[in-house]
């Protein structure tokens, strides 16, 4: 194991930011800490960086007790949400900083530092901007410089706090792919914090889902998506609908028709069934809830529908363009049939 976090608890004066958090990261793994704001994910990252101390628990790296080391001694590469670039230094000086502050004996020679900076500038594709100052860069460029600066000290772990938080949507997507490529090239164990589930699922090898200071679930993106352990994880990972029904064994009866269900610790009886927009079918005559079409949004390859049941409940669904759906319009009445539902305790 490369990084082990065990039973970490951290309490601020007013509330528990983290309680009993335990997880591990394997060497070279790309791990996401995912949760809504207030879930404790940034606190956890600061503990890993040594910027805060836990009340109890242990953090170890390659068997070494991290809590005995301060932020300076841990040799972690931290990319701050605000980037925290040194405003009075050029890009090249920013990247070189971690090497030039080493004590005399460990400090690389000037030419070694220059070579390292050049190779990092190449890695972040800003070869020509080494002499610029941070204020002269775009948001995305600053983010890359912050990453290069963290990588320059050959960190044992790379920590990123909402790495794409301050960027606009287009730049985000681009940088996301680029970051994954950098990770694959350098192979450094990476932990990043995000509140964006799409980002976490897209980038990470494994995702740690946090809720109110506790770990809700840990798993590979696909596992989390296919096999969420709680209603919170299911809802947090994407758009979803709810409908009331009766759970019997491994299917939910909606009165007139029943649908196969994935059951997580729920007992038979009245239950809330949750389903994804794309796990649905609509038809004019088949089984399902009678619903009225509120709006039809042709969203690229898919068709998105907003539907309303007789009880006022609104559903959102997604379908391929086909015979049955493509001539729908607002005001039509159709039947909505979930094809797969989840029931949680």
């Amino acid at each position: 194991m490369s990084l082990t976090v065990s039973n970490i608890t951290k309490t601020f004066t007013k509330f528990a930011a983290l309680s009993n958090v335990t997880f591990e990261a394997e060497p070279g793994e790309f791990l996401a800490l995912l949760g809504p704001s207030g879930s404790g994910k940034t606190t956890l990252l600061r503990l890993l960086a040594g910027l805060d101390q836990p009340d109890s628990g242990a953090i170890a790296f390659d068997g070494e007790d991290f809590l005995q080391l301060n932020a300076r001694e841990r040799r972690i590469g931290m990319v701050f949400q605000s980037y925290a670039l040194f405003r009075h230094m050029t890009v090249a000086d920013n990247i070189a900083f971690g090497l030039t502050v080493r004590p005399g004996k460990e400090r690389p020679s000037k030419s070694q530092i220059k070579a390292k900076v050049d190779s990092l500038l190449k890695l972040i594709q800003l070869e020509d901007l080494g002499k610029r100052f941070p204020a002269q860069l775009s948001g995305g460029q600053r983010q890359r410089v912050a990453l290069a600066r963290a990588l320059a000290i050959e960190p044992r772990i790379l920590l990123l706090d909402e790495p794409f938080g301050a960027l606009d949507a287009l730049v985000r997507k681009d940088l996301r792919r680029w970051l994954r490529r950098i990770h694959d090239e350098t192979g450094v164990t990476t932990v990043f914090v995000t509140h964006d589930q799409e980002e976490a699922l897209d980038l990470a090898d494994r995702v740690v889902v946090l809720k109110e200071g506790r770990i809700e679930q840990i798993g590979k993106p696909l596992e989390l998506y296919r096999d969420p352990s709680s209603a919170f994880v299911f809802e947090f990972l994407g758009a979803n609908n709810q409908a009331a029904g009766t759970l019997r064994g491994s299917s939910v009866d909606f009165g007139g028709f029943s649908v196969p269900a994935i059951v997580k610790g729920a007992a038979d009886g009245t239950a809330v069934a949750r389903f994804r927009p794309f796990d649905t079918q609509v038809s004019r005559s088949g089984p399902g809830f009678p619903v009225k079409v509120l709006s039809v949004l042709p969203a690229g390859a898919n068709l998105r529908l907003e539907l309303q049941g007789a009880d006022g409940q609104v559903y959102e669904t997604q379908h391929a363009h086909d015979q049955e759906t493509s001539d729908l319009k607002a005001g039509d009445t159709v039947n909505l049939l979930p094809t797969k539902v989840y029931v949680f305790a």
Partner: peptide, 9 residues
Amino acid sequence: PTNGVPENF
């Protein structure tokens, strides 16, 4: 201490 962020924190 309660879990999660209290209101107006």
